[in-house]
Design a binder for these strands. Sequence first.
DNA 1: TCCCAGGACTACT
DNA 2: AGTAGTCCTGGG
Length: 277
Amino acid sequence: MIRIKVTKPFKLEDTITCGQIFRYFKQEDNSYDIIIKDRVINVYMDKNYLCVSSNKEENLNEVVRDYFDLDNDYSLMNEYLITQDSKLEKAISFSNGLKMIKQDPFETVISYIISANNGVLQIASALNNIAEKYGKKVMFNDKEYYLFPQYKELKDVSESDFRKCKVGFRDKYLKSMIDKLNDNEIDLNEFYHLDTNKSLEKLMENIGIGPKVASCILLFAYQKYDVFPIDTWVKKVMKNDYEIEGEKNIRKFAKDTYGKYSGIAIQYLFNYGRNRN
DNA sequence: TCCCAGGACTACT
DNA sequence: AGTAGTCCTGGG
């Protein structure tokens, strides 16, 4: 077990449960088991320390710091957002310490393709089904976990196989994406270097990826903070608190108001909108 | 039984 | 170019 001193605002539980990631498991002691790439970790806060254990100790400190974006200070971004929109102050003070998790691109692509017109519980269930069938088994604290498979491991998985994992009509979208990756028609690393508009455009060339899904992929896997993933929650908040309706109007408002930190602003609004009640 | 949940596609004007 | 209807699935 390692203890990482946290020197910047950090809300562990909100960060884990605010809808960025799906494959986490709350434990009876209120800690969380999370499957990250090639390992399983258990995390909890003890005062100002993030306590982490894992089935794989090597580089654990670096991996976890990077995953939770612990070394990034969000205070300047927050100040900027509040000067742009004073209404955000409530949401930000409520959510201060919410971090943008840096996720594995492939798992993020698959996760958010499955997320289309779907609920969080079913998204998680489908992802876990895929991992249990095709991922590597890992034992951790006497529990069985399954790593999320790489696209090479999913090469021969058919649409009906995916359908059995309860992904529904998105089966063909997954198959198409995985085929393209295995044929080297898509390189997931290139999105680290392309600008946001070009990345959105290229992602949306793929069937099953529209504006919302593409935005989530860029926000959660590539740290492109200037996207605006507009979902029903954002639409509700925009209508109720800002009297703005329609995707086009929301997108313009976000771009004009929040600019390069639109994605962060939406995350605050989302967390606030869902948890304040 | 109906309705919808953190959208996208298709088939129409 | 813009918009209805349709799409698995599970839970209320």
